[in-house]
Write a protein that binds this DNA or RNA. Structure first.
Lengths: 216, 216, 216, 216
DNA sequence: CATGAATGAGGTTTCATTCAT
DNA sequence: TATGAATGAAACCTCATTCAT
């Protein structure tokens, strides 16, 4: 592509990456303007092809959204698998790594943006919400709940309700994700993002820890 | 319905409530389908008047959205004023009342829905975001931060960063608000909503409290 | 309309005739260019309204075609009823009036054009064909067959197969209808149209009539 | 299929039949869906080649239609020539053979479909209609008219108007052709198709025949 | 010769907004 | 005030045609 300095070829053949490029472009625009306010032609232009070409890869605008969500679910599923492995170790350490893990994931804009889009389009595409709920939310919260339950059973955590506590753990992270950018609470690469995670961990650990387990 | 002329008169002269009814209708639909996917005609029908009449009260669809956000800001401003008053009391008790207050506010669907809409339309209406940020987010977080700072200064809270801790306080509440309904995590009138607040308070208080201040 | 010499009003309210005007315009264009090659905008312009207004009356282009066919079926149903009444009289006279009747009907361009359109779109809209077949073709041929059968039974006609003979009766009329205009075989108001009917009747009567019944 | 290299070789060098295969495919689809609703890609697929390859043989979709009509005109021209030869014989026998001939021709779907297509596209391609009219309709009707005129002059037929009578002769055949399949009046391989021709001949001969010439 | 990815004009349909009544 | 028919600017999507390979 960049290797032909002569001129930009009108036709580019068999670019295997095309479908992904379309999704990337669509993601940027869906984030910026929402699904309904994004025109297919804009997606096309940003992906570097024509309006019609988009339809070679996806049969409709809605299909683009669906593919987008599916694509984002895959890496998360892997993270959830990783979560499973964490369960066997020390709950406290596991929780710490977990929050780091989520923090890193949510820092990835291409992954983090999806929930925001789903929140906006929930009413129009219920099946999207449902598949995200089943594959991400439920599995993620499930793993986290199990982890906390073990901590309670081992006496490392106070006798909290694991299900509800799990929401207290991820809540600030998700809220930060959804709102930080929008309300300019913190820019993406703010060093305070790191400090926010630390603060969260600090309060959480102290709030969960059983009497004798507390750090000074 | 039309047979009971008392309750809902067909001709209502100078119905002062009309603009508000339009906003109510718009709110319901914006939540359900998003701003772009909601037709002015639908708003009109739901508000019980004609398409044209909507334009007697609001010059454009966008103006309806703006009025909606403005209307939701007012009661929140009052809550924030109430927050100010709390600052003079015992920080711990104040924090407890505050979370109750927020919990109650967020349980009010007409108020709670606004942030969700703003999240969805942030890209298209930046001035909306900005005004919400200035009048709600900043003031709310500001008051909460001040409250925590006083708790730290008084030695009731551990030496946390008040600004960041404030986010830890509201984060789960906001996340719950934004996601619970969408992902069917909890139905609107779930008694667990109460227990969720309790759990949050419990962990928070233990996480924030200074050594000697902890409850058993 | 023509009574306001000042200027053509931009908005015309509640013109009850609008839907019919749309059908008239569509009919003209479907005849001239076929269904697929006719743009909704052309229909609108010819009907004297805007593209969007067409959709106030019909939900889709296909619905226009369906309405068109339905509208043309009504008067034909009445003619078929009239056919039923003819059955009680003298078969020969009845056949004569019948051919006149059909001839008149087919001379009405708005009615006669429908079969031509159906022939062209048969593959794309099978349900259209089916409803036309049931309501027009079957009933028409049925009445005609009954009439001929009676003629045979009364000894006025030779012992022909009534079903097949019915096709011999209407065949030339339909062929004339479908082809005459297209192939410029005869202009619409050609006096020869009358003579064509006469010739048809003449040959037919002689071909059907039993020995003794023939005219010189 | 691909495993038998004999029957349908994947690479067929200089396939002279290609253009004809394209026409065959196009004909099938034009009949089924009409010209406008048929995509070039569908024609290509049905003809067993790629979309681009179609354009190696025909410069445009319209050119395919034109070639189709031209191709169908050729054999008909020969039949018309045969008609000319019939003129010298006994008019009655000639008429009988003629109707058989036409009946056979019209039974050939690839030939019979053309008029149906022309009827549908008459408005969009007048030059197509014109060339068909000149080469098929006019010559065919001309020959038939001449044949009937001779019959009248020889006293075998009653003194009918030869031009109009010619239309009475072909009318039912054409009507049958255009409508039978569409309206399921008679399936393609119905044995009654033969009987329909017989009935037509029977009525026609009796209707045309002069007094003394009539069969019992 | 042959392919099929790519283009882009153009068609159907939607909907915010206007305005005669 | 209130109505809702009417407008017209897009938006989505299709498909005839081109052209690099």
């Amino acid at each position: 592509m960049a290797s032909t300095p002569t001129k930009r070829p009108k036709f580019r053949r068999r670019a295997e990456a095309r479908p992904d490029e379309v999704l990337d472009a669509a993601l940027d625009l869906f984030i910026a303007r929402g699904f309904a306010a994004t025109r297919v032609e804009d997606i096309a232009r940003r992906a570097g092809l024509s309006k019609g070409a988009v339809y070679l890869y996806y049969p409709s605008k809605e299909a683009i959204l669906e593919a987008l969500v599916q694509r984002s679910i895959l890496p998360i599923a892997e993270q959830v698998a990783a979560l499973g492995r964490l369960e066997t170790g020390d709950p406290k350490a596991a929780l710490r790594s977990l929050i780091d893990l989520i923090g890193d994931g949510l820092a990835e804009p291409r992954v983090a943006a999806i929930p925001k889009i789903i929140v906006g389009e929930a009413g129009n595409f219920p099946q999207l919400v449902e598949s995200y709920r089943r594959q991400v939310i439920e599995r993620g919260l499930g793993a986290l709940t199990a982890l906390i339950r073990r901590g309670v059973e081992l006496g490392q955590f106070r006798p909290v309700d694991p299900e509800l506590a799990a929401r207290n753990v991820v809540g600030p992270l998700i809220a930060h994700l959804l709102l930080a950018r929008i309300f300019s609470i913190a820019p993406a690469d703010d060093p305070r993002a790191r400090r926010f995670l630390d603060s969260h961990l600090d309060i959480l650990m102290n709030g969960l820890a059983a009497e004798g387990e507390r750090k000074a």
